[in-house]
Design a binder for these strands. Structure first.
Length: 640
RNA sequence: GCCCCUUUAGCUCAGCGGAUAGAGCACCCGCCUUCUAAGCGGUUGGUCGUAGGUUCGAUUCCUACAAGGGGCGCCA
């Protein structure tokens, strides 16, 4: 038998001790020695403190290959593990029906966990042991620039912003883009109302709300006056041509709305690196370039007969150009479809188009750049695009066209880019019956959810929701200053929109969204403020940390929670799922509250060792909470 | 017709091969002269949609079915 390697160690600040990895390696080696190397060590946090700190059901899994009872295998593993040189484990035990448990040596792992938490620094990427993400371009928000942003758009932005933060936190190079569809039907509708019908902005009416109102009104008038659709067609035609007075007018209008969107999102601490405009993609000839590539590769073909006669189509895998699987890229009138232009944009994102935008700084927002077709003022060193991985945060209803874009990349021979074209699909935000009633919708049909609709004005504006949350928080916050009230309210709203898994439709409910207790953003922030309060009250005596002889269960639970931060971040990054980090942060906050309630007030603690240890523990928890909250785009106030 | 998502406590949701299925809300009962009660503890509440299958082990994987939602445009 080979000499067993020495596992683990206390680690360094750059690469903190990773107890789970060390234990996993030890288990894996023992499994190999027993002739079950194919069995996954599967080390997980112990289900109950009585079992130990870390446990594995590997013996249960190995029973079949080793043809022995699980408990016998577990006992054998246990005695072999006892011989390994793993300082962090004090004792190995077995529990039915065949779990092997590691009990950690407190003087080894506890100081390491606290030191790692206290060393957290937003400016320094956290090495979780997972591979650093590829250079990633995240596109999110993408709200049509013809109306105020509503809670559906806000869910998109929250998910995208948090995904970007999560990837950056573990060292990822991430570029965030907001795509502006300024040449579409929705923009044309508002243009018809403002320019052709002369609908006026009311006194004191915010510009985006004004446009929302015009949009609803114009859509209503189409019903009575179908001839109005001709005006829309004219607007769209002018936008397609570009470089005319209409295009200039629309550019000014959409820019004003984009500024409103940026201001709304800024209230939630959501920002972007680049605004990418559809009109620039159009006028810089991105599609023509993509067309050359697609047609040369045979990815799209000209169809002369059948229902797609006169079109260019991307055939199904079977070669069929007529069925559901075939997708029109160029209509018979010669105009490219949205999906076609999106394919060109996706090629640009990967640096595969062979064409680039021109760039200009966006006035009024620090660090924000916009694409432009003509008067660029940002030098070529500021490079955008050229990503190795692209994450498009788009609701799940667009799965079909997103799949087409991915398929187009594959047909061009860009297998890697196709694989790394990720449609981060999330379900929409709808209204709960209660919220629907509050908006005056008839709910007598007994539906469980009611769809939002910007076109008919059935929506909850993001700004309006935040204003209501601010009033809610202000009513409860006796002493907090205005800035704190605002960030607590924004955090509450963000948490509500991020804590659901992406596959769940959110049945938006005012009571739930505005709640300030229980599993809410306010609870997380409150826990952080509490920790800060303790640190203010309990002086740091400057003494070195020493671990008490025996830890209270709540202390041990809190330490495990701190240690779990890196695993939560790793999971959240791997799944591109902010909800994973939300769950973790709630558990951390709850565990701190549990600790707070079940240990005597620290200010009166007479035992200097215990007081010092607990102060370190609270400081470490505060640092971890702050880091997790920041990664979720939620503020971590010290008091409120 | 085909494809995707959902179905877990009264309500809103986690969990997605392993040890007695967890939270929050609501309800009821307690706890503020002690570091923030926006908190904590306790009580009540579950044939994990149904039926098969795979497995030592299934809420978790597979198949079928049911209910609800979404998609399958020469819309964007």
């Amino acid at each position: 038998m080979l000499a067993r390697p020495r596992f683990g160690g206390v680690g360094t600040l750059a690469h903190p001790m990773n107890t789970r990895v060390d234990i996993t390696a030890a288990i894996a080696q023992i499994l190999a020695e027993l002739g079950a190397s194919e069995i996954d060590p599967a080390v997980e946090a112990s289900a109950k403190p009585e079992f130990g700190d870390w446990s594995t059901p590997a013996a249960l899994r190995a029973a079949r290959v080793l043809r022995k009872p699980p408990i016998a295998i577990a006992n054998e593993m246990c005695s072999l593990l006892a011989e390994t040189d793993l300082d962090v484990v004090a004792k190995w035990t077995v529990s039915p029906p065949g779990y092997v448990n590691a009990h950690l040596a407190d003087p080894v792992w506890v100081p390491a966990v606290i030191a790692a938490a206290l060393a957290l620094d937003p400016a320094i990427p956290l090495h979780t042991g997972a591979r650093t993400p590829l250079r990633t371009l995240v596109e999110h928000t993408n709200t049509n620039p013809n109306k105020a942003a509503h809670i559906g758009h806000l869910r998109n932005a929250c998910i995208g912003d948090s995904v970007a933060r999560i990837l950056r936190r573990i060292g990822g190079d991430v570029e965030v883009q907001n795509y502006i569809d300024d040449t579409g039907v929705q923009v044309a509708d508002v243009t018809v109302g403002v320019r052709e019908l002369g609908m006026a902005q009311q006194d004191g009416e915010p510009f985006d709300q004004y446009c929302s109102r015009v949009y609803v009104e114009v859509c209503r008038r189409y019903e009575d006056s179908p001839e109005l659709l001709e005006k829309r067609r004219a607007v769209l035609h002018a936008l397609e041509a570009g470089d005319n007075e209409m295009a200039t007018f629309v550019k000014r209008l959409t820019s004003r709305i984009v500024d409103c969107h940026l201001a709304t999102m800024a209230r939630f601490d959501i920002g972007y690196d680049l605004l990418a405009w559809e009109s620039d993609i159009l006028h810089l000839g991105f599609w023509q370039r993509a067309f050359e590539q697609l047609s040369a590769a045979g990815a799209i073909v000209s169809v002369t007969a059948g229902k797609h006669a006169g079109c260019w189509v991307m055939p199904a895998d079977s070669g069929d150009v007529e069925g559901d699987e075939a997708k029109v890229f160029i209509k018979s009138d010669g105009v490219a479809t949205y999906t076609a232009k999106d394919t060109a944009y996706q090629l640009w994102k990967f640096g595969l188009l062979g064409k680039d935008f021109r760039y200009r700084t966006w006035p009024g927002v620090e660090g924000l750049t916009t694409t432009t077709s003509n008067d660029g003022d940002v030098d070529a060193d500021a490079r955008f695009g050229g990503a190795r991985q692209v994450v498009n945060v788009i609701d799940s209803r667009q799965a079909y066209p997103q799949g087409i874009v991915k398929r187009a990349l594959a047909r061009l021979g860009h297998a890697e880019a196709a694989k790394r074209s990720i449609h981060l699909a999330y379900e929409v935000v709808a209204l709960s019956p209660g919220a629907a009633r509050e908006l005056g919708i008839d709910t007598s049909n007994g539906g469980e959810k009611y769809a939002l609709s910007g076109r008919t004005g059935i929506e909850v504006r993001a700004d309006e929701l935040l204003d209501r949350a601010i009033e809610h928080v202000r009513a409860k916050a006796a002493t907090a200053d205005d800035a704190t009230v605002r960030c607590v309210a924004a955090g509450a709203v963000r948490y509500y929109l991020q804590r659901f898994t992406l596959t769940q439709i959110i049945a938006f409910d005012f009571d739930e969204a505005l709640r300030t207790n229980g599993d809410s953003g306010v609870y997380l922030q409150y826990a952080h403020a509490r920790a800060a309060g303790i640190l203010r009250k309990v002086a740091d005596d400057g003494g070195a940390l020493s671990v008490p002889q025996s830890l209270e269960p709540v202390e041990r639970a809190l330490l495990h929670c701190l240690d779990a931060y890196r695993y939560a971040l790793t999971d959240a990054a791997a799944q591109l799922a902010p909800s994973v980090l939300c769950n973790y942060t709630f558990t951390l906050a709850a565990t701190l509250s549990d600790f707070y309630e079940h240990t005597p007030a620290m200010v009166r603690e007479q035992d200097a060792t215990v007081r010092r240890f607990r102060r370190h523990l609270v400081a470490a928890t505060k640092a971890t909470l702050a880091d997790a909250l920041h990664t979720l785009g939620i503020a971590a106030p010290d008091a409120f």
